[in-house]
């Protein structure tokens, strides 16, 4: 095989690779759009009037997740399934956002931490790599961390809206999350950087809780906590 032949052979491979990436990029753009729509929808929970509408907003978000499912279904057809990590970078970010959104919806509905299985189910993907297009564990954890900072905002805003109980519940939730993350031996990677931001969320919520308790605004729930 001559040198020229060899290079054109490889060039063929590279341009095929580029084509796949182009296709993926198109679908991911659609996904990002839907993710933004869900985010905009959920942002209204920070409004004073939005607190009552949480259930209806969550239901609407669930509807939009159906669109996400079809889009991810489309994405799955764009590349060979066993090469997930070859193109991982393309959807990594949007998958983290979507995990965040799913986790946020689940939290608003039930005040529980979303499991990996639940996220996978909401997004219509798998949990383990062997089964197909899956949610990487680091992406799941990153998504959960994005939710933590959203919750610290929610704690602040719920005080403004006159809900003094929610911050305490959020505080408990975030503290539990923090102790969970403490168990992980993170390397010096992007997830680690994200995790380092969690302490600021914890701090912010604690400040809110402090403000509430020093003014006696959280009396009712505190007494229930002491029992």
């Amino acid at each position: 095989m001559s040198v020229t032949e060899m290079f054109s052979h490889i060039q063929g491979f590279l341009s095929a690779d580029q084509d796949i990436r182009e296709e993926i990029r198109k679908v991911v753009q659609g996904l990002e759009q839907t993710a933004r729509e869900i985010l905009t929808l959920l942002q209204s929970v920070h409004q004073p009037s939005g607190f009552k509408e949480i259930p209806s907003k969550c239901a609407k978000a669930r509807d939009l997740f159906c669109t996400v499912k079809t889009q991810i279904g489309d994405l799955k057809t764009k590349f060979p399934v066993e090469q997930y990590y070859r193109f991982h970078e393309h959807w990594r970010f949007v998958l983290q956002r979507l995990t965040f959104l799913a986790a946020f919806v689940v939290y608003l509905e039930s005040e529980n931490l979303v499991t990996r299985e639940e996220v996978a189910q909401i997004l219509g993907i798998e949990v383990v790599r062997e089964k197909g297009f899956h949610l990487d564990i680091e992406d799941y954890l990153a998504g959960v961390l994005i939710m933590a900072s959203e919750l610290s905002r929610l704690a602040v805003n719920s005080v403004t809206a006159g809900d003094y109980n929610r911050p305490l519940r959020i505080s408990n939730f975030i503290n539990e999350l923090d102790s969970g993350f403490r168990l992980l031996n993170l390397k010096n990677d992007p997830l680690r950087k994200r995790y380092d931001g969690l302490k600021y969320d914890v701090k912010k919520i604690e400040e809110v809780v402090y403000d509430l308790s020093i003014r006696g605004l959280a009396k009712e729930s505190e007494s229930s906590g002491d029992k």
Binding site: L113, T115, R116, L141, E176, L177, G180, L183, L184
Partner: peptide, 11 residues
């Protein structure tokens, strides 16, 4: 707690 248990698996 379920959260801590889940994180042990992640660990």
């Amino acid at each position: 707690s379920p959260v801590v248990a889940a994180f042990k698996v992640f660990q």
